[in-house]
């Protein structure tokens, strides 16, 4: 199992978590929806669910549920700036196709 974060992403996640003032960490996940079948989930976590796995990555607690783990193996989370827009971006080696907007994918 390998999930990685770029330094930019790690720094932003820390800032956002500190600013929020509460929460266990950051949830990465997938859900079945979107135009290509699966969509990424990026959420703050206040409590753990039963099948959640938590681990630390660059001083940040990352939480992933068991079902999502399969799909997320090998992904890298990045924080990028594109013009005026800035936000997080996943690079997923498992994804075979992405929809035009990159918000959903299939494996």
């Amino acid at each position: 199992m390998s999930v990685t974060m770029t330094p930019a992403a790690a720094e932003r996640v820390k800032t956002f978590l500190t600013n929020r003032g509460k929460g266990l960490g950051l949830r990465l996940g997938i859900k079945t929806t979107g135009c290509s079948g699966l969509a990424y989930v990026l959420e703050f976590v206040d409590e753990l669910n039963e099948d959640d796995e938590m681990f630390t990555l660059d001083d940040v607690n990352i939480i992933i549920d068991g079902k999502s783990l399969v799909y997320l193996d090998g992904i890298e989370l990045d924080f990028v700036k594109e013009g005026l827009n800035e936000g997080f971006k996943f690079t997923n080696p498992n994804a075979k196709g992405e929809c035009g907007c990159g918000e959903s994918f299939n494996v």
């Binding site: 956002f16 989930v41 990026l42 206040d46 409590e47 594109e82 936000g87 907007c101 990159g102």
Partner: peptide, 11 residues
Amino acid sequence: MALLQIAEPGQ
């Protein structure tokens, strides 16, 4: 590609 933001739990 659209960039993602961190959402509140379950949101």
